[in-house]
Deep mutational scan, measured.
Amino acid sequence: PEDEKKAKEALKRANGDEDKAKEILRKLGVDPDRAEELLRRLR
């Protein structure tokens, strides 16, 4: 869904750096736990 698209985009923008991607997602208003879960799934 929408969050998943955001997560993929964030990872791309962060050049695969998960911590940076998490930060980006947090700024986009995605719940930190949700962000973590999404990134884990994309790994």
Rank of each mutant, 00 (worst) to 15 (best):
G16C: 06
R13L: 15
N15S: 07
A35L: 07
A10V: 04
E18I: 15
E37D: 08
K6C: 07
L25V: 01
P1I: 13
I24M: 08
E36T: 08
E36S: 08
A7M: 05
E36H: 06
K22E: 03
L11I: 07
A10R: 00
R34Y: 14
R34N: 06
E4Y: 15
L28V: 05
D17G: 02
R34D: 07
E4N: 06
R34E: 08
K6D: 07
L11G: 00
A7S: 03
D3H: 05
I24L: 09
E2F: 10
D17L: 04
I24S: 03
K5A: 14
K5M: 14
A35I: 15
E23Q: 08
L38E: 02
D31G: 10
E37I: 08
R43Y: 07
R43G: 07
K8N: 05
V30T: 03
P32G: 12
A35D: 01
E36Q: 07
V30D: 00
N15P: 02
K6F: 13
K6I: 15
A14N: 02
K22T: 05
D3A: 08
V30Y: 15
L42W: 05
E23F: 04
A14P: 01
D33G: 11
K6Q: 14
R40Q: 12
E36F: 05
R43M: 11
L11D: 01
D3G: 06
A35H: 04
L25D: 00
E4I: 15
P1L: 15
K20Q: 11
K5V: 13
P1D: 15
G29P: 00
K20G: 06
L39A: 01
K20P: 00
E37G: 05
K12G: 06
A35T: 04
P32S: 11
R26M: 15
E2P: 08
L11A: 02
N15A: 09
R43T: 07
R26W: 11
R13C: 08
N15Y: 08
K22L: 14
D19A: 15
A14D: 00
G29S: 03
A35Q: 03
R13F: 12
D33V: 13
V30N: 01
D33Y: 10
E18T: 10
